[in-house]
Each structure stands twice: as structure tokens, then as C-alpha cells.
Design a protein around this nucleic acid. Structure first.
Lengths: 217, 217
DNA sequence: TGCCGGTATCTGGTATTCCAGATACCAATA
DNA sequence: TATTGGTATCTGGAATACCAGATACCGGCA
């Protein structure tokens, strides 16, 4: 008898977490700038208690650094972190493919293509485009049936988008993402782990090159 | 002039986090049992505010589940989670080796062997033995120079130890860990990625088999 | 003019209070 | 006896109050 089950009211900490993270990723908050619990809680309309929980999660995930009695600082983007993230992303997206391919059926592949087609629709809006590109990768991760792997990929993707929006702000154009996705899907259709992982790694390497090129200017 | 810099006093939330996590891993708190913020804060001698921060970190890391207005529940151990953790661990320990080998010099290898020798000294004490086995893997992760990878391995290792202590409680003996480490070190000495990753994967697979065998009883 | 020290004020950390949802129990009733 | 409904009492969520460390500012003094 749970067709009437009431939805849990969203917790303030989750709302604050999502809002702040979005603002960081989209560079509405400058890297390196300082936040302040009291004014933040005011502008979000909540008290410091749930805000502290949100901030702690952001710190654990590597978005901010909290220095007791000094302040809360948005992390800066540097090559060391970008490298770390991309090394992890490559290894774990390869794991996604390895887990995924034995589970594939034709219907699932059709769904993957459908998710990918969202990209074309939004290619005129860079922000939307980036998010739909991410959802393609997240969907593959979800299909791997490993929840912790999914959460890891989600975190890595968020950071990746943060870097990418920095490049977008600098006026860089989007790369050949759509074509690269097509190569990945071809590999999946062939149920060929080697072919698919090569396509994924190439896709990630190209994105890395774009981000690093922008970083060094 | 920072040789006189005062150490930051440890934060209550970190202390609470460490204490509770240790109690969970060593099975002083039963999987599936319920915790209570008020009595926990009393027994730790702190207020609920820093405790909430500790509990949230534990939840994000997969140790507990917090249900609003119901309670806080220690996660149970099931095959699905064990599988997820081991899939991640294998992929990422392989990444550690790939990053590590190009950075190796003879002195570093000597240090690795020294860390591994701690194992023999403590082979009569299973709890100490498990922790020294972990420190071997964590040391390799640290040498990979990728901070996020290190943190990931640390989390996976903690969960691994949780599973392993469950087997220890059930009276299982420790496996051939020391010999398997020797094979890993041999691979490192040869600077051979394939040989070393094979040794690491074999090491992890053996541990997996032990844990799963115990789980199914 | 430049340095030194005290104080006002900023910061996050911690404790406490209040609130509402969930639940268990018990008494009243059919 | 079985069921229902109200209440006491659990739970965690959120707001507020208070504390101490860190800092910046400003006035006095060399």
C-alpha cells in the first residue's frame, strides 16, 4: 500500500549543496574566492546548521577548503588536480565499459543512442550541451550496475564540467564530442571491449588537451 | 618563521568520525544496528552539531544510512556491495601501479620492502596484521602522487578491512598475504607493469574469495 | 614617519533550544 | 476481544546563542 507514500520533504542541506555546487561549476563563484557561512546562510534563507553540512560535503568532494576561524575558500583550478581527475576518469570509465558490455542487449543500446541524440538538439546552447554530454557518460556508468562506481564517475564528471566551463568562459569552442560518442556507440554495438575503451580514452584525452591548453594561457 | 607554528587543535567532528568508523570496522558496532544522535553525542562527550558532521561523512562514505526522523542505521554487509568495492579496488590499484612504476627508484623500493616487513613482525596479532597489510597498499597509493586516487584507495581499503574483520570474527585464518606481497615487490623491482598488476590482481582476488566464502555461510 | 599594542570585529566551532514527523502505547469503545 | 484514536515520547532537522581564535584597524609612542 505504498502508492500513496508521501515524498520526503527535501532537506535544506541537499538544497544548499546543489545550489552552491552549481554556482561553483558554472563559475558564478570565482575560484579562489572566499565564502562566509553567515552571509551564505542568509542568501540561501537557511540557518548555519544545514549549511555547514552542505559545505562539509563540498569539502569532502574537493570543491572548497575550510580553514577553521579563517574562512571557506573555493578551490582553484591547477594542472595537478586536472591530471589527477583525468587519470581517475580514464581508469574508471574503462571499468564502466568492461562491466557494461557483458550486460548489453539491443534495447539498451537503442536507449543509449537516444540519450546521445539529446546532444544534437542542444548543440546551440553550450551549457546545455555540456550537461547532455555528461548525461551520456553518467548513463553508461549507471548501466554498469555498480553504485559506487556511478557515484565516483558523477563526482569526476562534475569536476570535469567545472574545468570545461572555465574553457567555455574563455571563448573556446566545443570539440568534436558528438562524433566521438558515435565511435563509442559503435564499439558497444560490436560488444568489443578493446574498441570501446579505445574510443572512450580518445574522447577523454581530447577533452583533456582542450582544458590544459586553456589552462596554460 | 613557521617552525613554531601551533598545531591546529583536532576538531570534534574528526575525532567522532574516527572513533565511530573504527568501531564499525572492528565490528564493535553490529551491522544493521541503530545509532542515536543524542546518546552517541553523550558517550563521545560532544554536542550533536559536530557529531552530525561526522555522521554525514560516514554516510557519504557508505558506512551508515540516515533516515530523517527514523534513525541512523549501520549498513549491512552484502555480496552486491562487496562486489562493487572489489571491482573498484582492482581497477584503481592497477592504476596505482601504472602511475607508480615510472616514478620508482631503488631507494623507494627499499622503503616499500621496509613497510612490508612490518607485516612479519605482527603476524601473531590479526588486527595489527590487517592494518599493516593495508598500510602496504596505502603506501603504494601514496607513491602514485595522485591525492584523489589515494583517498579513494583509503576508503576502499577501510571497507575491505570491515569485511575482513567479519571473516576474522568468524574464526577464519589469514591467507598467504605476505607471500603475495613479495610477488608484487618483485614486479616493482623489474619495473614491469604487467607482472606487477597481475600480482596485485591475484592478491585482491584471493582476499575476495576468502570474504565471499565467509559471507555465504 | 614608522612601529607597536590593544581592541573591535570578523571568522568558524560548539552547545543548546525548539520544532515537527514517526511511533508505540494505552485507554475507550464497539 | 479487537479496533481505533489520542497522546506521550521517541527520532533527526533546523535555528539560535555563545565561545575562542584570527585579523584588521587605529591610536599612541619612539
Amino acid at each position: 500500500m505504498n502508492f500513496l507514500k508521501a515524498e520526503q520533504p527535501p532537506l535544506f542541506k541537499d538544497h544548499a549543496y546543489n545550489e552552491i555546487k552549481k554556482a561553483i561549476i558554472q563559475h558564478e563563484i570565482e575560484p579562489g574566492s572566499m565564502l562566509n557561512e553567515r552571509s551564505l546562510s542568509e542568501s540561501l534563507g537557511i540557518s548555519r546548521t544545514p549549511l555547514k553540512l552542505a559545505l562539509q560535503q563540498l569539502e569532502l568532494e574537493g570543491w572548497i577548503t575550510s580553514v577553521p576561524r579563517k574562512g571557506i575558500f573555493i578551490k582553484t583550478i591547477n594542472k595537478r588536480d586536472v591530471d589527477d581527475i583525468f587519470q581517475l576518469r580514464k581508469a574508471n570509465e574503462v571499468l564502466v565499459i568492461e562491466l557494461l558490455i557483458p550486460l548489453l542487449d539491443n534495447e539498451t543500446i537503442a536507449t543509449i543512442e537516444k540519450v546521445d541524440n539529446q546532444l544534437v538538439v542542444h548543440k546551440e546552447n553550450p551549457v546545455q550541451f555540456v550537461y547532455y554530454d555528461s548525461s551520456f557518460h553518467l548513463f553508461l556508468a549507471e548501466l554498469s550496475q555498480n553504485l559506487r562506481l556511478y557515484q565516483l564517475i558523477e563526482n569526476l564528471t562534475d569536476h570535469f564540467n567545472w574545468y570545461r566551463f572555465a574553457a567555455l568562459k574563455a571563448g573556446k569552442s566545443l570539440d568534436e564530442i558528438y562524433y566521438e560518442h558515435t565511435l563509442i556507440i559503435e564499439g558497444l554495438k560490436a560488444r568489443n571491449i578493446r574498441q570501446t575503451t579505445d574510443a572512450v580514452l580518445n574522447h577523454i584525452d581530447n577533452a583533456y588537451a582542450t582544458i590544459i591548453a586553456n589552462l596554460q594561457e
